[in-house]
Design a protein around this nucleic acid. Structure first.
Lengths: 242, 242
DNA sequence: GTTGTCAACTTGACAGCGTCAACTCAGATG
DNA sequence: CATCTGAGTTGACGCTGTCAAGTTGACAAC
């Protein structure tokens, strides 16, 4: 038996690109339903699109390009989501917190696509470069106001990489290791990791340079003093701390 | 042509387990030489061990178990390496810095194994549980002295997860995205990320609870003051800051 | 309305993969 | 020498991505 009964009418000359869209949505549906990339075979995609397997090659050079296209489609949301998360928050540090949490939330909402785009060895070719690059760029955008306001100090690229490392680490770890003792509120944890990275970068940037390393005792005392200073008013506020 | 000319003498009854070791080292060599998991096929492993393909199934239930065994072999170093890195450093925070850097270094030195064990969706079975669990346990060990000394405050498990997220994020990002604008000294960056996570956790733990979120301006001033306090002596020391 | 052309798609195959049931074979044991 | 059994092989199955060559069908021209 061939792939399947023919179910799709041949496109008219000039409309060949129509199939591309149908293949893409078939692949997307397949990936979303199974939640597992192993379900995404060219044969399954083609059959779902009502077409034979090699027809996929008319619009995608190979499987990798198809997978990339499927995953990239979901990526178009990321920038908007991160910007929306920080919109209306004028304080640059608090805005960065929202940006980071939005990034983590996005990753957790698209586990398969995130894994395929961010946790695969690089293809060697230039494909899907834009996705991972977009992540770094968005994080860079999020921290720039903090740099301009003087909350963060240091090299912007380096800071963005460190910040992204923390965010990506949370997503990647959660996706690959759901058996870890994760708290129920991973949303909160996303904010905590962002805060951790933000506070840590802010402080580490100031401590750079030669000099003796402070002891843990000095840290403890200094941190307690800093916390007191940053918490002058014990009255409750609408937002979380830090 | 069958798999290859027969090159291995059949083991004597009772010595069947010998083949297991030969398969393991063949697979290890294959993985190390290619630096790419796609080179690790059962046929290649069997041929390298001088045996036919199905013989692998005499000692490993499936390919996944073989891959896990290969990767786990390298994991036995991790605990020792992390402990060694912190040995002799009595200051708990500085010891934690070393632990974190050692973890990152380990991951970067075993890219294929790290990726296979830490960046793959969970098998569903219990296999290789120990590897990822070991990571979390080692990080937990590293931060416990900090908790006891009062440098870190908060839930140990949560803190370990956050710390591991930062460390894993750096490794995972570097392995999956070598095309990022990484600095030449990733070693230094490993330390910076550890420091970032440590400082951030230390501070974030103190700022938890209800209350208004400090503004970026308050942060900036408070951080500058803290940095001054932690850097009382501008004389150069042997160690990095922070 | 017949014909020709070319894009759109199919046919049929290839090599390689993980996996398994059935078979052979050598070495130890009686 | 006969037999038993653990060690390894043979040959196959269904699956995968991929490709060269063939077919089909809508439109444009006569």
């Amino acid at each position: 038996m061939p792939d399947t009964r023919r179910s799709r009418a041949r496109a008219r000359p000039g409309d060949g690109a129509l199939l591309r869209g149908e293949i893409l949505s078939a692949a997307t549906a397949l990936l979303d339903e199974a939640g597992d990339e192993s379900a995404l075979t060219l044969r399954a995609v083609a059959a779902r699109a009502g077409v034979t397997t090699p027809s996929v090659y008319l619009h995608f050079a190979n499987k990798r390009e198809l997978v990339d296209a499927v995953c990239l489609a979901v990526w178009e949301d990321l920038g908007r989501r991160m910007r929306d998360a920080g919109a209306g928050v004028e304080d640059p540090y608090q805005a960065m917190r929202r940006h980071g949490a939005a990034f983590v939330r996005f990753g957790l909402e698209h586990p398969v696509q995130y894994r395929l785009l961010m946790m695969r060895p690089r293809s060697g070719e230039e494909a899907e470069w834009s996705a991972a690059d977009a992540c770094l760029a968005y994080v860079g955008e999020a921290i720039r106001p903090c740099l301009e306001a003087g909350v963060l100090v240091g090299d912007p690229t380096r800071l963005a990489l460190q910040m992204l490392a923390a965010l990506h680490g949370l997503v990647a770890l959660y996706l690959a290791r759901p058996d870890y003792p994760w708290p129920d509120d991973v949303e909160t944890m996303a904010d905590e990791v962002t805060r951790m990275a933000g506070l840590g970068s802010a402080l580490a940037g100031r401590l750079r340079g030669p000099g003796p390393a402070p002891t843990a005792g000095a840290f403890t005392a200094a941190f307690d003093a800093l916390a007191d200073r940053l918490r002058p008013d014990p009255a409750a506020g609408p937002d979380g701390r830090g």
